[in-house]
Design a binder for these strands. Structure first.
Length: 654
RNA sequence: GCCUCCAUAGCUCAGCUGGUAGAGCAACUGACUUGUAAUCAGUAGGUCGUUGGUUCGAUCCCGACUGGAGGCUCCA
C-alpha cells in the first residue's frame, strides 16, 4: 500500500496526501474556512461522507451548501434529525423513508393512533434545534443483514424491515446520530451542528411506497438551512410567490370565479378573463391560419359508441362523467372528454387523397373530465376546460416534418408570451410491458423514434420519462412551473397510429391504393385554463399590453372634463384599444392609485390643459408620467408596442 | 378517492375559557370640483358554509355533508 495518495481537485490541480486522509483533511489543507463548510464530498464521481478515509488516487470535489448535492446531503441529514426529534417526543413512532427533495425534505412516519397536526410543529422544531446544537456526529456502520433485521424487529418497525427485504447482505449501512439509528445508504453531513434554522412546512398523507392500496403514512415536510437568514429569505420568497397565485389574482383582477352551486372544478369566466382568453385564442388562430390549419367546430357531446370505438370508454369510462341517457331506449351520449373522435369523423366526411394531406383540423374544443376531487386546483386542474386542440392527419413519411412544424409553433407561442423557463419532456411507454397501452409494438417504436428524431433535429433539449405516455401513443410535453414551483404540463404533441386504425381512416395514394394516415394530436397552450393560470403567475397579473383586459384607463381631473374624456375614449375604441373612463367623484391621485392597483397598463389623464389642446397626459403603470401627446400619437405608440410584442408566426421547416 | 388542516360582511381579517358578532377596504348617500399611488362625513350590509346532535343556551364542543388549502394516488 502506498503511503501517499494523489488527489485531483476540480480545477485540475493535484496534491499528495497521506493514505487514508479524509475529504475534510484535504479541505483543511486548503483552508480552515472551507473545511468548516464541507458537507459531503464527491470522490471519483460518487457522493460520500466527508469524513470517510480515501485509500487510492482519486478525483475529489468538496461539496458545500452552494452545491446541489451538498444541499441534498444537508437536507437528508436533516430528515434524520427530524426523525430523531419525533422519536424522542413520541416514542413508538415507526419510520418509513425520509429523503431530500427539491427544496427541503420529508419523513414518512407511522404515528400509530396519534395524529400529527401543525400544532405539533413548534415542539418538533424546538427539539430538532436542541438536538442540532449537540453537534452529534453522523456515525456510519456497516451491518450484516441479520443484525439489521434483528435491530428493526426488536424496534418493531415493519417499514424498515420491508425496506431491508430488498437489500443484499453486505451492502447495508446504518447511520447513527445521538440516540437515533436509521437504515441508510448515506451520505451525511459530518454532524448535526451544521443545521441552524429549521421550519416544518406542512403535514400530509402519503401512501406507503406510493401505493394507494397500502397504508397511509403521515408525511412531515420541512426545510432547514445553515443560517437563520437564509430561512427568513426563503419564507419571504414563499410569501411573495403566494401573491402571484392565480387563484388570488383571478379574484382580485376579476378574471374568473368558481361557484359551489355550479360545481367543483367548473370555472366561470368573468368579462375581463373572457377578454384575455379571447385575445389568446385570436393570437393562436392567426398563427395557425399561417401554419395551414383549418378551424372546425364540434358539439360538446357525442354518442357513446364513438368513445367505444376510440378506446376511451374502455380505458376511462368508469371514472368519467356517466353517459347521458335520452328518452330513446339504450341511447347514450358522453360529454366529450377529447375532441379527436369528432375530428376523425370530419376526416371521414369525404374520401381523402394523398394530395389532401397533411390535413390539419383545429378547434378550441371544450372537454369534460371527471378528475378526482382531491386533484382539482384553481384553473390548473379542472373538470371542464377548453383545449386549443388540433389533429394533423398525414402520410407516414410526413410525420417527422409535421412534428417539427408543431415544435416551431409551440416555441413561437411560448416565446411570444415570454415563457422562458419550460422543459421539454419526451413521454414514452413504461419500460416493463403494461396493458394500459393499446396498439402494436412496432407502431409505438415508429412513433417514439419520430418524436426523438424530430426533437433532436430541432435542437430541443429534452428529458425522457418512461411510463408517462398517453395510452394511445408517446408524446412531447412542454412543462412549466407555477409560482410555488409545482410542475404543470402545458403544450403537448402526440403521435398516434391507433385512432386512424380504430376509425378506419384512409387515403388514396398516388398508386391508387388505400393507405392509413397517421394522426398528430397537439395543443400549444394545452388548455386555455391552465395556460392562463400559468400566465397569470408568470406575469403576476401584469399582462403584456396586447393581452391586458383593460389596456387604458381615462382619468378626468374632475367631472367638468367628462365630455372630453368620452371623446377620447370613443376615438381610441376606433383603434381597438380597450378600457374605461373613471367617472367617479374622486381626486386624480385616487383614480391613479386604483388604476395602478388594477394593473392597467396606460392611464390617460385629461383636464383643462388637455381638453384645450386636444391631448392626453399619458402615465405608464409602474413608470409614471410620460408627458402629454395627441390621441393619434398615443395610439401610434400603443400600436408599436403591441406589434413589437407579437411577431407573426414563421415556420422554419421546408 | 385517501390523509391533515380550514370555512365569520363582496374582499382581508378580529372575536379570551359556550351567553345569538366587530374592524379596515369595497358598496350606497351627501359634501368637496379636484393635476400624477388612498378627500371628508354618514348609511347599509352577516339565520358566523349547510345540517344533525350535546347544552337552559352553540359562531365557539361533537358528527355528517358541501366547498377550499397542502400533499398522496390518478391524469385522455
Amino acid at each position: 500500500m502506498n503511503d501517499l495518495i494523489k488527489i485531483t481537485l476540480p480545477d485540475g490541480s493535484q496534491r499528495d496526501y497521506p493514505n487514508g486522509s479524509s475529504s475534510i483533511d484535504v479541505a483543511m489543507s486548503i483552508s480552515e474556512g472551507l473545511a468548516r463548510n464541507v458537507l459531503a464530498a464527491k470522490v471519483n464521481g460518487k457522493v460520500q461522507d466527508a469524513n470517510l478515509p480515501i485509500y487510492a488516487d482519486s478525483t475529489l470535489q468538496l461539496l458545500t451548501w452552494n452545491d446541489t448535492e451538498g444541499k441534498a446531503t444537508f437536507w437528508h441529514s436533516s430528515a434524520h434529525l427530524l426523525a430523531e426529534a419525533v422519536e424522542a417526543l413520541f416514542p413508538g413512532t415507526k419510520f418509513g423513508i425520509g429523503p431530500a427533495i427539491e427544496t427541503g425534505f420529508y419523513y414518512d412516519i407511522d404515528p400509530g393512533e396519534r395524529k400529527f397536526s401543525q400544532d405539533d410543529f413548534k415542539a418538533i422544531e424546538d427539539k430538532m434545534i436542541e438536538l442540532a446544537r449537540q453537534k452529534n456526529e453522523f456515525v456510519r456502520t456497516e451491518v450484516s443483514k441479520d443484525d439489521a433485521i434483528q435491530y428493526f424487529t426488536q424496534k418493531n418497525d415493519e417499514y424498515k424491515l420491508e425496506l431491508l427485504e430488498g437489500l443484499a447482505d453486505g451492502s447495508i449501512t446504518f447511520y447513527q446520530q445521538g440516540n437515533f439509528t436509521d437504515l441508510c445508504r448515506g451520505p451525511h453531513i459530518p454532524n448535526t451542528g451544521f443545521i441552524k434554522a429549521i421550519k416544518l412546512m406542512n403535514v400530509a398523507g402519503a401512501y406507503w411506497r406510493g401505493d394507494e392500496k397500502r397504508r397511509m403514512m403521515t408525511r412531515l415536510y420541512a426545510v432547514t438551512f445553515p443560517k437563520q437568514k437564509e430561512l427568513d429569505e426563503y419564507l419571504h420568497l414563499l410569501e411573495e410567490a403566494k401573491k402571484r397565485d392565480h387563484r388570488k389574482l383571478g379574484r382580485e383582477l376579476e378574471l374568473f370565479m368558481f361557484s359551489e352551486k355550479v360545481g367543483q372544478g367548473l370555472p366561470l369566466w368573468l368579462p375581463k378573463g373572457t377578454m384575455l382568453r379571447e385575445r389568446l385564442e385570436n393570437f393562436l388562430r392567426k398563427a395557425q391560419a399561417r401554419a395551414g390549419y383549418l378551424q372546425v367546430v364540434t358539439p360538446h357531446i357525442g354518442n357513446k359508441d364513438l368513445y367505444v370505438t376510440s378506446g376511451h370508454w374502455a380505458k376511462y369510462g368508469e371514472d368519467s362523467f356517466k353517459p347521458i341517457k335520452t328518452p330513446e331506449e339504450g341511447e347514450e351520449f358522453m360529454l366529450k372528454p377529447m375532441n379527436c373522435p369528432h375530428h376523425c369523423e370530419i376526416y371521414k366526411f369525404k374520401p381523402r387523397s394523398y394530395r389532401d394531406l397533411p390535413l390539419r383540423l383545429a378547434e378550441f374544443g371544450t372537454v369534460y373530465r371527471y378528475e378526482q376531487s382531491g386533484e382539482l386546483h384553481g384553473l390548473t386542474r379542472v373538470r371542464g376546460f377548453t383545449q386549443d386542440d388540433a389533429h394533423i392527419f398525414c402520410r407516414p413519411e410526413q410525420v417527422k416534418d409535421e412534428f417539427m412544424r408543431v415544435i416551431d409553433l409551440v416555441l413561437y407561442v411560448f416565446k411570444s408570451l415570454g415563457f422562458e423557463n419550460y422543459s421539454a419532456q419526451i413521454s414514452l411507454r413504461s419500460v416493463e410491458p403494461n396493458d394500459k397501452y393499446i396498439g402494436k409494438n412496432e407502431d409505438w417504436e415508429k412513433a417514439e423514434t419520430a418524436i426523438k428524431e424530430a426533437a433532436a433535429e430541432k435542437g430541443l433539449p429534452t428529458i425522457i420519462e418512461h411510463g408517462e405516455a398517453a395510452f394511445y401513443g408517446p408524446k412531447l410535453d412542454f412543462m412549466v412551473r407555477d409560482a410555488l414551483g409545482r410542475k404543470w404540463q402545458l403544450g403537448t404533441i402526440q403521435v398516434d397510429y391507433q385512432l386512424p386504425q380504430r376509425f378506419n381512416l384512409e387515403y388514396t395514394g398516388a398508386d391508387n391504393q388505400k393507405y392509413r394516415p397517421v394522426m398528430i394530436h397537439r395543443a400549444p397552450f394545452g388548455s386555455m385554463e391552465r395556460f392562463i393560470a400559468i400566465l397569470i403567475e408568470n406575469t403576476g397579473g401584469n399582462f403584456p399590453l396586447w393581452l391586458s383586459p383593460d389596456q387604458i384607463a381615462i382619468l378626468p381631473i374632475s367631472d367638468k372634463y367628462t365630455e372630453y374624456a368620452e371623446e377620447v375614449f370613443f376615438d381610441l375604441q376606433e383603434s381597438d384599444i380597450k378600457g374605461y373612463v373613471d367617472h367617479r367623484d374622486e381626486k386624480i391621485g385616487r383614480k391613479i392609485r386604483d388604476a395602478e392597483v388594477n394593473k392597467i397598463p396606460f392611464m390617460l389623464i385629461v383636464g383643462e390643459k388637455e381638453a384645450e389642446e386636444g391631448k392626453v397626459s399619458v402615465r405608464r403603470k409602474g413608470q409614471g408620467d410620460l408627458g402629454s401627446m395627441t390621441i393619434a400619437e398615443f395610439s401610434e405608440m400603443f400600436k408599436q408596442e403591441v406589434n413589437q410584442a407579437i411577431a407573426p408566426f414563421v415556420a422554419s421547416v421546408g
